[in-house]
């Protein structure tokens, strides 16, 4: 798990970020927080839950948790089930 991105660092600003999201390798331009990722994926933050490297990310912290290259994420929601 990364720390909050330092917006003053130009290297971080332009870094390419390779993440695994729901089992798929994906490339993003960094820096990126969990909130930023959810938004870029076009998802509604209120309807999903996020696990980062097998740890739950509390929704209240999405904006503060920065992502690092190689991070593995699971993003889930509720579907029909018995």
């Amino acid at each position: 798990m990364g720390t909050a991105p330092d917006n003053g660092d130009m290297n971080v600003m332009t870094a390419s970020l390779r993440l695994t999201v729901n089992g798929e390798g994906k490339e993003f331009s960094g820096p990126l927080s969990v909130a930023g990722l959810v938004e870029r994926l076009g998802l509604d933050m209120r309807k999903v839950a996020v696990e980062l490297n097998r740890e739950i990310v509390p929704r209240s912290t999405y904006g503060q948790v920065g992502l690092a290259a190689g991070d593995v994420l699971e993003i889930v929601h509720f579907i029909g089930g018995g």
Partner: peptide, 12 residues
């Protein structure tokens, strides 16, 4: 009852 599954990233 509901199930928990990965969101479909190709159709968010």
């Amino acid at each position: 009852t509901v199930a928990v599954r990965r969101v479909n990233l190709s159709d968010p």
